[in-house]
């Protein structure tokens, strides 16, 4: 049984179709990356999965349970199992770094505060922010905020992690650190769905890569196929343009 199973997913912003029949099946512990030009629907797919944009058609099943986005309880159950790291981080501006990471596990998941605090400190140390526990988001660089967002998502102990352009604000050294973190998560059997423009990152970390354009998955396969021998002309054009730079 697929850990995340998406069938015929359609989503629209106003009257514009941004996802046009997405079929995607991800096994437990698998890392799938979505690549494609801007506006192809990659980030929208993550928004739909996490319930921020209701789908117009199609289904999303998480660990065998189809999510009913109109039903609050069903949505809550699905959100218990997944976490998302946003491209714009979306850290809570009124909370310091430690509280940003702790607030949901303590307040929403009702986990023990001391245990969560220890976990949060360990996660923040792992992403190189042990000295920033009391800093506020507006005191951090984009890369630092991104790493706090990753720590915050991981502290929720999700089964599936959705990463939206997590390397976009990072310098090359930090990209390597995030890569190591993602590899570590994969070793922990966490399922990852990654949106990225960082092709080196995608190639190294992914089990499969899906190329998206016009709201559709145009081609999907192992990184070696997508980056080495793409089958579709649009994938070929995109990959050659990206790798050419």
């Amino acid at each position: 049984m697929a850990h995340l199973d998406i069938r015929g997913l359609v989503a629209r912003y106003n009257n514009a179709t941004v996802l046009d029949g997405i079929d995607l099946s991800i096994e437990r512990g698998e890392i799938v990356s979505l690549i494609g030009p801007s506006g192809s629907g990659k980030s929208t797919l993550l928004r739909v999965i996490s319930g921020l944009l209701p789908p117009r058609a199609g289904t999303v099943a998480l660990a065998g349970e189809t999510i009913n986005y109109a039903d609050r309880r069903s949505l809550r159950r699905s959100r218990d199992k997944l976490a998302i790291v946003f491209q714009q981080y979306n850290l809570f501006g009124n909370m310091n770094v430690l509280r940003n990471v702790m607030v949901a596990p303590v307040t929403i998941q009702k986990r023990d505060k001391k245990t969560v605090e220890a976990e949060a400190c360990a996660l923040l140390a792992k992403v190189g922010l042990a000295d920033k526990l009391n800093a506020y988001p507006d005191e951090l660089s984009g890369g630092q905020q991104q790493r706090v967002a990753i720590a915050r998502a991981l502290c929720l102990k999700p089964d599936i992690l959705l990463l939206d352009e997590v390397t976009s604000a990072l310098d090359p050294e930090r990209v390597g650190e995030v890569l190591d973190t993602v590899k570590m998560l994969a070793a922990d059997n966490m399922t990852l769905l990654i949106v990225s423009h960082e092709m080196g990152f995608v190639r190294e970390v992914s089990h499969r890569v899906a190329f998206m354009a016009d709201g559709k998955i145009q081609e999907m396969g192992p990184p070696a196929q997508i980056f080495g021998t793409p089958q579709q002309p649009r994938t070929q054009a995109f990959v050659s343009r990206i790798l050419g730079h």
Partner: peptide, 25 residues
């Protein structure tokens, strides 16, 4: 709105979002 979205995907209820995120900001 992105602040409320971040809270929503972490399963904050409407009240928790209001009290912990929206009102303090």
């Amino acid at each position: 709105p992105s602040q409320m979205e971040a809270a929503a995907v972490m399963n904050f209820s409407a009240w928790h979002t209001f009290w912990h995120v929206r009102l303090p900001q």
